[in-house]
């Protein structure tokens, strides 16, 4: 008798969860939110492709590279991105490996320091930077790259940390050293190949950051890609909207790439303890 009653109560909760999440409400919510996210994208595309005579043409996208100032600004942003990536990886990979391996107790402290840039808004940071930087550094746009490496620290650390956690780091390092590998051999020939996807996702996030960073670049008065977009919009808003849309699509594809990598990594590491 008791057993029957038990079965009865276990089955009951499986009925749908009441009227608050009825499927009509659900679809209305998703439809409204979906519209909020998709309409601006559609509007930007339509706005960019609108011609003066009321027609529609995709020529505006083809004309972007030849716009005045575009090549210089985009080139500068790409260079800054490359320098930032080199600094970030050279600094963060050895340190993250070292902390995981030798100083597990300072992991929290290290993580705390890498998260500090979140507490300091870029607009405040650049004020301090321009105060202390010597004239020789202020005269070059690569001061920005040095600071972008700071802004990239939080997510570079997170990518590398989750990559390192998925490895049996100690075993790998011990195997490498017992086969006669030095610190550099271990880092470059054993650990890096295993951290490929973590390094790749840190790199992509850094590229997205540098190509979109406006605050510090504009206040340091260098015409990077986003700064150019704002300046150019005074002349032709259609081109600026087209460039925004295009750069968004590129960044989105990169970020989609990361989430695919993450999913693959998730699948390959779930079997580990």
């Amino acid at each position: 008798m008791v057993a029957v009653a038990d079965v009865g109560v276990v089955v009951r909760p499986r009925v749908p969860r009441g009227p608050s999440t009825g499927s009509l409400t659900r679809w209305i919510v998703l439809l409204l939110v979906g519209a909020y996210f998709l309409i601006p994208l559609y509007a930007a595309a339509a706005f960019a492709m609108e011609t003066p005579d009321g027609g529609v043409s995709a020529d505006v996208f083809a004309g972007i590279p030849s716009q005045e100032g575009f090549a210089d600004a985009f080139g500068l942003s790409v260079n800054l991105a490359l320098v930032t990536i080199v600094i970030t990886l050279a600094l963060m990979i050895p340190t993250a490996v070292y902390v995981h391996l030798r100083l597990p107790r300072v992991q929290r402290l290290f993580e705390g320091i890498t998260l500090l840039p979140i507490v300091i808004p870029p607009v405040v940071l650049i004020v301090g930077v321009l105060q202390v930087a010597p004239g020789s550094l202020k005269g070059t746009p690569y001061l920005l790259a040095l600071e972008y490496a700071v802004l990239a620290m939080p997510f570079a650390y997170r990518s590398l940390d989750s990559g390192l956690r998925a490895l049996s780091l100690k075993t790998l390092v011990e195997a490498s050293t017992s086969l006669g590998g030095g610190w550099f051999t271990t880092l470059f020939r054993v650990l890096l190949p295993n951290l490929r996807s973590a390094v790749l996702s840190a790199t992509i996030l850094t590229i997205a950051l540098v190509l979109g960073e406006y605050t510090m670049a504009s206040l340091d008065q260098y015409e990077t890609f986003p700064v150019w977009m704002v300046v150019f919009s005074q002349d032709d808003a259609h081109v600026s909207v087209a460039v925004s849309l295009l750069s968004l699509v590129v960044v989105w594809l990169l970020l989609l790439g990361i989430s695919l990598i993450d999913r693959r990594r998730g699948r390959t590491t779930t079997g580990e303890p």
């Binding site: 996030l205 977009m229 704002v230 849309l245 968004l248 970020l255 990361i258």
Partner: peptide, 20 residues
């Protein structure tokens, strides 16, 4: 989609909304 949209701000977003 959330991962992608949450990473997105700055001037590009401004232009998207100027167009709408």
């Amino acid at each position: 989609a959330s991962g992608v949209f949450a990473n997105f701000g700055g001037v590009q977003l401004a232009f998207l909304f100027i167009a709408s």
